[in-house]
Simulated scan of single mutants.
Amino acid sequence: MMAGMSGCASMTARSPQRLLLLDGLRGIAAISVMGYHFGHVFHVKNLFARGYLFVDFFFILSGFVLTLALEPRLAKGWPPSAFIRARIIRLWPMAALGAVAGAMVMFATGGSGTVEIALTLLMALAMIPLTGIRDLEAFPLNGPQWSLLFELIANLVHAMLLQRLATKVLLGIAVISGTTEALVIFTYGSNRVGPDSLDWYAGLPRVAFAYTLGICFGRLWQSRRTRIESHWLVPFALISLLPIALCFTNGWLSRASGDALSVLVAMPALFWLAACGSVPSRLERVFSGLGILSFPLYAVHLPILKLFSHFDQSPITGVAALATSLMLAAGLGFTIDHRHKAKSASAQKLGEAGDLSHSQSSAKGKVDRQPPVEA
């Protein structure tokens, strides 16, 4: 569910600088989700007890970025099937890596029998959740995989249907799904819905609201109307600290009320401020690095935390688990980014050579020069 900015086909020269703020925020979001899982795995209270709220930020970001990258290309005749194939190529390998890591950890720690682990792994690799089982996650090998499945479903619906709908219709869908999400939050007592096997379907309004709203934001951003300029530090600090601040409201604001206000009101408003903001040039590499780190960290951190906690739950082991997760994610992220840039540069050179020699058809040249879809 990590949304990248390099796939936006209609950016201006200044756009990459503006969107780096969102790159930095998705890195902070992934770190916060890791902090939330760290508290559960190591049984310690920390300031990231509401870090699960950042999953909604990821869904908004995915809808926003893929609107910039997808809709102009579909309008020019790019087949939806090609888009879905690109999304699977983008998301599945990291989801598979997380599932394999989870299977290895479960086997090493004696969590289940070999046959059971193998069958669970096959289902995870096929992106098939376990459903209807109490006290079990839909993807027990690597819990966060549920959101990657939901994002792929949202991507499919976007390409096949949502991109054809008017923005006013999409806003209506967002209102209906947001109202449904509020009912779910107050029914379950929080917005931590979606990962569990027994009631996985409760996460559908969650992704429907956030993703659809992200599409609306993307179209509004493209129109260049109603942009609200603000200092980059305002949305960055407020979004980053929002789940932490909620940890101090238990005395006067229930968890359900805080979660609902956060994901339905505060986070969308702050997201729009972030989409309209820009970062100083001196911080561009930092924010870009956070964005590169985010997807691998989100996809692989939980098995690592579980492995370390199985042998020891001391503070030193916890710090080592966090450091290992960050270093592994950074290695994966920067390796993938380097290979992607090299592939894009090679494709661009081939496209230019084709234009000069007239050895490629005009249609193929246009396809080759299309920027990749990343999110």
Rank of each mutant, 00 (worst) to 15 (best):
G7H: 06
C8W: 09
A13F: 01
S15E: 15
Q17V: 09
Q17W: 06
L22N: 06
L22M: 12
D23I: 04
R26V: 08
I31K: 04
S32M: 12
S32H: 08
F38R: 02
H43S: 15
N46W: 00
L53V: 10
V55L: 11
I60D: 01
V65P: 02
L70P: 02
E71F: 12
A75K: 12
K76E: 15
P79H: 07
F83G: 01
I88M: 12
I89R: 13
A101M: 15
G102W: 08
G102Q: 09
G102T: 06
F107I: 00
T109C: 11
T109S: 12
L119S: 14
T120M: 04
T120C: 09
T131A: 11
G132S: 08
R134A: 14
F139A: 02
P140E: 07
N142G: 05
N142A: 09
L156V: 14
H158E: 03
Q163V: 13
T167N: 06
I173S: 05
I176F: 13
S177M: 03
A182K: 01
V184G: 07
G189K: 05
G194P: 00
G194Q: 04
D199R: 02
D199C: 07
Y201L: 07
L204E: 06
R206C: 08
R206G: 11
F209K: 00
G214T: 05
I215A: 10
G218K: 00
G218H: 08
R224H: 15
T226L: 13
T226M: 11
I228T: 11
E229W: 10
S230Q: 06
S230V: 15
H231M: 11
W232L: 07
F236S: 14
A237N: 07
L242Y: 06
L242M: 15
G251M: 04
L253Y: 03
L253A: 14
R255Q: 14
S257Y: 03
D259E: 08
D259H: 08
A260I: 08
V263M: 08
L264T: 10
A274S: 13
R285K: 14
R285L: 13
V286T: 13
S288Q: 14
G291I: 09
G291S: 10
I292M: 07
P296V: 01
P296S: 08
L297I: 01
Y298W: 06
H301W: 09
L305C: 06
L305S: 05
S309M: 01
I316W: 04
I316R: 04
G318N: 07
L322V: 14
A323G: 15
T324C: 14
L326Y: 05
L326P: 09
M327H: 00
M327E: 09
L328W: 06
G331E: 12
L332V: 12
G333I: 05
I336L: 14
H340V: 01
K341T: 02
L350E: 12
E352F: 02
D355F: 10
S362D: 13
V367G: 06
V367L: 14
Q370H: 00
P372L: 12
